[in-house]
Design a protein around this nucleic acid. Structure first.
Lengths: 333, 333
DNA sequence: CTGCTTGTTGCACTCGCTTGCAAAAATAGG
DNA sequence: CCTATTTTTGCAAGCGAGTGCAACAAGCAG
């Protein structure tokens, strides 16, 4: 099956009785074309079903319009909503998203970036994992923009978008304290990414400041299932926590379900829970979870705006606020 | 900021002391190159950080390796998991996914397909919405493959993947009947897509066969919020249903939460619920929802396999089975 | 009518790669 | 050692677009 059936600018030119340059100019904003030729070209293009070949255009202009989204576990609620925001805003900026799934091997983030280079992507946005420095250097050297979201590691020349994880965690401690809680616990995964660790450290630091001990438990990855296990571990301790900060909402859901159905605990009267991300499920009435909202649209906006800027030398690090969303999993409020 | 910093085949050729063609052949599987030159070329390429320009390659070969995923509300659990499966399998087949978000108007699907044509995508996979026939014809005429998932509308030349919605709905009716339910209801959205309607029709047909009436209620889109509203409408009827088939899981979650928290109904003893999709949340202990699993991996496999086939003339329609997943939202089992 | 400015248009070159073709090199056969 | 065959290699012609440059037409002042 040959695929050379796409209609080319030449054909449009012939039909409109003009040169190929004319049709090229018609589709290039700001080029010099008379109203008359533009009309005739557009007409011919419409009739033939002509569409500019972005591959060829990208080749000439050295600007493909492609932005790679590099992500693992993209069906996770928070990730999915971030992808949605990013694709939406990229499209509004007339760029297009390429999605690279890095679920498989570990060096696959590197592989993904190689793909991005191969397709001459204008930029890559990394939502998970951390590529090798040699690769990111290659990207930057090649003139590809790089955005790291919640990666919190330094890469000169890349834009790094992070949240104020520490501060959020501190605020949640205070909220729990005000709610009258005294036995604090932090439910974390073993993923140990910088942003997750910042939440843990922020929470523990707040505890120390108030002279209160914080039980830290870590298990698995940031999933519902891990929440189940963490609940089992935390709630069987001799000094049962009455306040648990979960490193993300998914985990919090698992923990809450287990606390209720397996330990018959009432939330928030016997146990207060705070999560992070504000995924859709957090607002469901079974959870009604007090949490910190990831400003996904704002994150996407920062990233996309930065991509459109000519100069990228200065201030390539943003720290955004995760806003506290009060719901019913904490007393008072 | 100029971006012409990517290293080209010419540079690699110079460094390796061979011709451009040699480096091109080194990266073309099955081309005739001696072991010696291949080694020298690879070495030079590695040193320079060379990566084949897929834009140019696609231009020559008339085969970009790009597959467009056209989807709306991609942060919905079912959609997200389908996207994950598709991107994963596409990558295994050494293709790459372009993601186009069609959140806005309905003709945005048409726009998306135009984008696909512009990037000379080898194929487009449509997960939501239905494009105009004129556009799909243009795609097909241009030699672009087209896959429609759960769209259930005829488009000659495209691959259509659907589930046995009717049959699944019928099975769920029987299951509910066996569970001792007598007042059946069907909770649907107003989206009225063919696959959703097929579920409704299948369920109602089964009701008629058993001489039992089925209350049908439709509201909004297939979201949690719609489930809330539908619960309020259905559970305030004078003849309160004791069995509700929800057109998808998301809606079922909203309905269950409302039934429990607002109407104080026990599930499954006072109300049995069946959903559709088997999203992750269906397995969470708050829901523990009996549902039909979308065979996402299988759907993705069918799509990707078909894309690799040379001949596409025959049998371009697949109907897959949604398997019943028994959980606790229906008595017995 | 001439000279000059402004605006359009076409030619031809370029982007980075693949590939048919024919020349060159390596290998085999006698 | 020579010829026939098989690899390997380089040349050059594309692929489909954008764009500098020069030619050309139109409009205007003098």
């Amino acid at each position: 099956m040959s695929r050379k059936i796409f209609v080319s600018a030449k054909e449009v030119a012939d039909r409109a009785g003009v040169s190929r340059s004319a049709v090229s100019r018609t589709f290039t904003p700001g080029a010099s074309v008379s109203e008359e030729t533009r009309r005739r070209v557009s007409e011919a293009a419409e009739a033939l079903g002509y569409h500019v070949n972005h591959l060829a255009r990208g080749l000439m202009r050295n600007e493909s319009g492609i932005v790679c989204l590099i992500v693992s576990e993209l069906d996770t609620p928070y990730r999915a909503s971030l992808i949605r925001a990013l694709t939406g805003q990229l499209q509004s900026a007339s760029k297009i998203a390429m999605l690279i799934n890095t679920d498989r091997s570990d060096d696959s983030v590197d592989q993904a970036l190689r793909q991005a280079i191969s397709y001459r992507a204008d930029a890559s946005i990394i939502l998970s994992g951390m590529p090798d420095k040699s690769i990111t250097d290659l990207c930057l050297k090649s003139g590809q923009r790089l955005v790291l979201i919640n990666r919190d590691e330094d890469r000169d020349g890349a834009l790094m978008i992070n949240l104020n994880d520490r501060e959020a965690a501190r605020r949640s401690f205070i909220a729990l304290l005000r709610a009258g809680c005294r036995n604090f616990a932090f439910a974390n995964s073993e993923a140990m990414t910088p942003s997750l660790m910042a939440r843990e450290e922020g929470f523990c630091a707040a505890g120390r400041e108030h002279g209160l001990e914080v039980t830290v438990e870590r298990f698995g990855s940031t999933t519902y299932q891990s929440g189940v296990v963490l609940a089992q571990r935390l709630l069987t301790r001799e000094k049962r926590p009455d306040a648990i900060f979960c490193v993300n909402d998914l985990l919090a859901c698992g923990l809450m379900d287990t606390a209720r159905h397996q330990f018959n605990l009432a939330i928030p009267s016997e146990l207060c829970v705070v999560g992070f991300d504000d995924i859709e499920q957090a607002s469901w009435s079974s959870y009604n979870l007090t949490t910190f909202a990831q400003p996904v649209e704002q994150i996407a906006a920062e990233a996309v705006t930065w991509l459109d800027q000519v100069t990228s030398a200065e201030a390539n690090s943003r720290r955004l606020d995760a806003e506290l969303v009060w719901r019913g999993s904490v007393r008072g409020g």
